[in-house]
Design a protein around this nucleic acid. Structure first.
Lengths: 234, 234
DNA sequence: CGGAATCCTCTTCGATACTG
DNA sequence: CAGTATCGAAGAGGATTCCG
């Protein structure tokens, strides 16, 4: 007789108890850390440790609990990688991946509060590659078809632009037109501070294998700051 | 030195402390009840009491705290109605109204968990009129221009469809083509259970002033159940 | 070493009672 | 009507420990 709904593994979850799609959705994704967890998984399957590192501040117990809950409601599933890796990874189900429009909308709206990094802010590489999807300008990129590989602080990301569609994921790129090695700070400067590709290249802040002008083209199709200013429906 | 950010009125708010638009957005809208509060305000300014009734289960202290917080961060503002009403209402600022795409995305996604009402679910009329925006099919309604007034359980809502755009708000409609009086249960049956307009009218479950066939046209341009099934980006 | 369960403290939430 | 005050219950955060 409390405001609760009981769930498959016997844990009890708070519900708004309203017949409303928004309320039901928030019953599932409204808890702390949940959407950030999904954000990181949008870039591909991850191990427990990867998730823990990508969510600075989450407790190990809370991460374990969230993973269980989200598996129960069908947002993600456990998978075991084929040998020799053999490790367990968590990956989004179709239902979990369907949260992308929600994340994109929040990203565009949240941009207006972004400002510049505060001293206490962590710069999480994954976050940039999800933000890129929200900042992608399909009309500007209509005739661009190119694949980039970014190597940042021990992580590797693929960004693919093709026919007005942009996809990003963690992992090595297939047939990249350019492989760029740089720091998170340099990526940030390129995207948010207007650091010019030329300067970044000549200063050696970005190292390129492949066509050096790819960095220009890459930057031209994203507008992180515009996304930060407008609500950008659709 | 905890993971906090201090705010204008001295209250302390948990932050994810990540340089990420999603994280920053969630710092603002991630707390319990916040998005449902915004959902209700999307239909127009509301008094404290209206908000309290539209959010069954929220404590009065929590509602007051949320209103203060959201005013502080600039999502809503207090306004005093002109005499003779003179009462205080809360209304969304531009920043608050810019959350509509977020609410729409959550509504479309949350639909897949909606099912049928549970015994403990409240049927909040406001929720239906926000859901209608998410379920609107612009292409189907391209040539429809019509205004409806719905009278439900002491509340009045306006739904306007014009040139592929749908707007809904709480309050009397201006120049309605049809004024429909019905219960929440009947609205639910029409939208979710496939109750036919003809039956609803002949049974007297819906009372119409104006063109009775307006109810047909109204229902034809929304697909709540399709919105519930697909992720429906854009 | 990755993947958790446990324990403890602190904050937030929810319900009710009370006040301008 | 529009909130504030209070207090028990639930949830989050951090450190540590345990298991394979």
């Amino acid at each position: 007789m409390g405001p609760e709904m009981t769930e498959s593994r016997g844990r009890s979850v708070r519900s708004y108890n309203q017949y409303c799609a928004v309320a039901r959705g928030l019953d599932v994704i409204g808890d702390r850390w949940t959407l950030l967890l999904v954000r990181n998984l949008l870039l591909g399957p991850k191990r427990y440790k990867d998730l823990l590192e990508g969510l600075p501040g989450i407790g190990t117990n809370l991460l374990a609990a969230r993973l269980r809950e989200l598996e129960d409601v069908g947002l993600l599933e456990r998978a075991v990688l084929p040998p020799p890796a053999g490790s367990t990874v968590y990956r989004l189900t179709e239902t979990g991946a369907a949260l992308e429009p929600v994340l994109m909308a929040i990203s565009r709206w949240g941009g207006r509060f972004l400002g510049r990094p505060r001293p206490e802010d962590a710069l999480v590489p994954s976050a940039y590659f999800v933000a890129l999807r929200a900042a992608f300008q399909p009309d500007v990129a209509a005739h661009l078809e190119e694949t980039y590989e970014f190597r940042i602080a021990g992580s590797v990301f693929e960004v693919r632009v093709d026919g007005g569609v942009c996809s990003t994921r963690e992992g090595e790129a297939r047939n990249p037109d350019a492989v760029l090695t740089l720091s998170v700070e340099t990526l940030d400067a390129l995207l948010f501070e207007g650091l010019s590709p030329e300067d970044a290249l000549s200063n050696g802040r970005v190292e390129v294998r492949g066509d050096p002008r790819a960095l220009d083209r890459f930057l031209s199709v994203f507008d992180v700051r515009a996304a930060a200013l407008a609500g950008m429906p659709g």
